[in-house]
Design a binder for these strands. Structure first.
Length: 641
RNA sequence: GCCCUGGUAGCUCAGUGGAUAGAGCAACGGCCUUCUAAGCCGUUGGUCGGAGGUUCGAUUCCUCUCCAGGGCGCCA
């Protein structure tokens, strides 16, 4: 793509200057082109002169002049200007865009997620096998509009990681442990509704509970476990349906309980004890933290042992997670022998690493209420991955002396923690506030009903297209909801304006982008009938672009092309930062560039076939980029609106 | 107390250590007998919460601080 070519050219030029003795040898930064904020600064800008003035021992403008002279000589630029304190502003000769345009057109009609050769797929220097776990809510209710953000983000993130050259596994962790008190309450609520028995005090109300009861085909009572597994399965099915309708599918729905059933949780527990990462000493270590994560004090809380406890009660087993960066030790096995959620987490994470096509990176997407879970989760992975250490009897220093057996253990634990920081990335998405009539809309209705993701999709779809069929409504609702969820950075609280989402107007960015695509499609259709033979044949093996020469470019053509070429870089950067919102922003910018081009550049003109051909090539390239961006977001690209 | 996130135009928000900080909406004014006006163009609008520091250069990095939201269970 054009930027890579220019970067290579820059490096050559700088090397040349050094070889010629015009620049003193030194440790220079790698020169790269940047996109200027203002169009009048040219197509690309170089800040090399500013960054390297010190190394060169010259003033930045001087370095800029040298670089400009060298670049002038390459016959690549229409203009090279040194501006301001030492920027080098570049305007590229139109024909230098031909290669990049051909590259994009080669990808027309290919989906970004299908063909590895797609132009938007950057060369991935460090491809990983990434397991992305997201949504993973309890199977005791429908997917809420709060979780909707995690669903949208997680699914788009997976697309993005794939597009940037990683292998991705999409995973949903089912919190179906039979020990779960919440699931027990949910099951008992269903039972009460079905059999007319007494409703549990902490029971779940809402139509969806009744709906589960209605589905179950039984008239008699069963053990609680039966109700639990039946209610769960029914609810899970609803979740799966809702998610699918929202464009979210998983490769694996992983059952927590299956780990218990296979005895793996217990096995892991024993492993941790053997490694010294867990034990049943009756104490909990709590770290008093100062600023910047500095340990101020190690507090040892002795746990009272109830002599009165029922016979057969066991000693509490603690994960010494304070050895792995957590601020508090965590319980793995309760006194009554039940294993905790975090105990299954150990087994679960071991499993993720140990499958046949195992992951080497884990990404876990969690909601805002799980922020405190990050260190704990990392400690779990660290403890599970740690290799046991031979005692060396050298006591650790300072606070560490309270935590570790000796320096050998400290080294081992710290290495495991650092490793876990690399292997496990926890992404927190922040709260969404839903606004209706300018006021916050409650997430939970007074009757105990939850504002479900499916309600959101339906409501937006119905308000947009009151008279359309259900499929059209759902598609529209899904497109708008996904785009709204994704257009803000996931780690920022944002307001979801339901009225704006349901407005079919220029205020709604989704339609702004989709409209650009629809305009393109209609234009291409029209060109096929009005000026057949002029439209570049992108299906030909050796593309029609070879006949399209870019001898001159209208300003709008130029800026549109540059924007199209940016997609690949944008995908790489967004994937690097796990920032899906960049793609939404890019889509809006690309749409803007297209609308601007469309307004000023007449495409179909039988009198000027060369101009038409060139512009159609640019339009096709834009269509490819726009589709790719929308694909990544999981938003449809309609052919007409 | 500690941790996380945010504070940028009237509103909603972009912004990668670079130039005069951008967009959409709102307000005002233009552009359809030629490819979809769900569009385009222009005007108005800013102590980038505050104070220090690093840097040739800070909205961006560091420290402190103010304000707002969220989180810190033998719950999951």
């Amino acid at each position: 793509m054009i930027k890579d070519e220019l970067n290579a050219l820059l490096s050559q030029s700088v090397d040349g200057l050094i070889t010629q003795g015009l620049l003193p040898p030194g440790d220079y930064p790698i020169p790269v082109v940047e996109s200027p904020k203002q169009a009048e600064h040219g197509d690309f800008a170089v800040t090399f002169a500013l960054a390297s003035a010190k190394v060169a021992g010259m003033n930045p403008r001087q370095v800029g002049e040298l670089l400009a002279t060298a670049l002038q000589a390459t016959d690549t630029f229409e203009s090279v200007e040194v501006a301001g304190p030492g920027f080098v502003n570049l305007r590229v000769k139109p024909n230098k865009f031909e290669g990049s345009l051909a590259e994009v057109l080669n990808s027309t009609d290919k989906r970004i997620l299908e063909k590895p050769g797609h132009f938007a797929r950057p060369a991935q220097p460090h491809p990983h096998r990434i397991n992305v776990e997201f949504v993973s809510v309890n199977p005791n209710g429908p997917i809420t509009i709060g979780s909707g953000r995690g669903a949208a983000y997680g699914s788009a993130l997976c697309n993005l990681l794939e597009a940037s050259g990683h292998t991705v596994h999409r995973e949903y962790y089912i919190n179906d442990g039979v020990n779960s008190e919440q699931m027990r309450q949910f099951a008992l609520s269903v039972r009460a509704l079905k059999l007319g028995t007494e409703f549990p005090e902490k029971g779940y109300r809402g139509d969806y509970v009744q709906a589960v009861a209605d589905v179950l085909d039984t008239a008699e009572d069963h053990p609680t476990e039966w109700w639990q597994s039946e209610a769960q399965a029914t609810m899970l099915e609803r979740q799966r349906r809702d998610l699918e309708a929202f464009g979210v599918v998983f490769d694996t729905w992983f059952s927590e309980q299956s780990l218990h059933d296979a005895g793996i949780v217990a096995e892991c527990l024993n492993e941790l004890i053997a490694k010294g990462a867990a034990d049943d000493e009756p104490r909990r270590t709590v770290l008093k933290m100062g600023k910047k994560g500095a340990i101020e004090e190690v507090v040892r809380e002795d746990q009272p042992q109830d002599e009165d406890d029922a016979e057969g009660s066991e000693r509490t087993v603690w994960l010494r997670s304070t050895k792995f960066g957590d601020d508090m030790d965590r319980v793995l096995r309760r006194r009554d022998g039940r294993l905790t959620y975090i105990a299954s987490d150990v087994a679960y994470h071991r499993d993720k690493f140990n499958r046949p096509s195992s992951a080497d990176r884990l990404i876990t997407v969690l909601g805002p209420d799980h922020h405190g879970y990050i260190n704990r989760l990392r400690a779990v992975v660290a403890a599970m991955r740690m290799s046991p250490s031979e005692p060396n009897g050298v006591p650790a220093f300072g606070e560490a002396a309270e935590l570790f057996r000796d320096q050998a253990e400290q080294a081992s634990c710290e290495a495991a923690t650092r490793q876990a920081e690399k292997e496990l990335l926890v992404q927190i998405f922040q709260l969404v506030r839903f606004l209706k009539d300018g006021k916050p809309a409650p997430m939970r209705k007074r009757d105990g009903n939850i504002f479900a993701l499916s309600d959101l999709v339906d409501e937006i779809g119905q308000r947009l297209h009151p008279d359309a069929d259900r499929k059209t409504q759902q598609q529209a609702g899904r497109d708008v909801a996904r785009f709204f969820y994704l257009m803000r950075h996931h780690d920022t609280t944002f307001d979801f304006d339901l009225d704006l989402a349901a407005k079919q107007s220029d205020e709604n960015p989704v339609f702004y982008v989709q409209y650009a695509h629809a305009r393109i499609c209609q234009l291409i259709d029209r060109a096929k009938t009005e000026i057949p033979g002029v439209i570049p044949d992108v299906t030909a093996a050796d593309l029609g672009i070879r006949e399209v020469s870019l001898t001159e470019l209208h300003e709008r053509e130029r800026s549109l092309l540059i924007k199209v070429f940016e997609l690949r870089e944008e995908v790489a950067r967004a994937a690097e930062d796990l920032a899906v919102n960049r793609i939404a922003t890019y889509a809006i910018e690309l749409a803007r560039a297209y609308h601007g081009f469309y307004d000023q550049c007449r495409v179909i003109d039988a009198a000027q076939p060369d101009v038409s051909k060139k512009r159609l090539a640019i339009v096709l390239a834009t269509q490819t980029a726009l589709r790719a961006a929308l694909d990544l977001l999981g938003v449809s690209a309609p052919e007409r609106m």
